[in-house]
Amino acid sequence: MSNAVSALNGKTATGPVTVQELGLTGMVTLRGDFEDEGFAAAVTQLTGLQIPDVRQFQTDGVKTVLWMSPDELLVVLPYTEVNAFVTAMNDALAGSHYLVANVSDARAIFSVSGEFATEVLGKNAPVDFEASQFVAGMVRRSRVGQVAAAYWKLDDGSFRVVCFRSVAEYVFGLIATSATAGPVGVY
């Protein structure tokens, strides 16, 4: 079997704000009707987490379920568990109208942490990162620079950023350069 490698193979830029590509991470796109009891039950049963509210995410530290749109979730889980999860999800949802796609190797995931991580992201996105507006537990799909991305804020104030794998180098470079340039004092 081929040797799976993440987009940037764990590339890290350290400094006051550390940007790290998180390496191989399982990511599964789930689409379906959130109101449907079968769908909600399958998500809860297989992740142990509830379907999150609008623009929120649920996490237990290992698995994370993110709200991506009114009919789309992103499940982040360990890379080794993805195939089993997809199979189980397909079995659980068989017969209903749904989509389960393993996008682990089609996305790149980054951690942005440090004292002014908020400002680093704020420089590159049309999003209000003010602490009272963008609270921990919130997820936002928007863009980083010129490309689509989603970001969410963890309890420790750090962020996770997900983008398409093909633009991983661009996103990493952009965020790392913004971090080097220092804070601007907005947030």
């Binding site: 749109s69 936002r140 799909r141 863009r143």
Partner: peptide, 10 residues
């Protein structure tokens, strides 16, 4: 749908 105040580039 998501309640975001999106600006035009989004």
């Amino acid at each position: 749908y998501c309640g975001v105040n999106a600006e035009e580039t989004e």
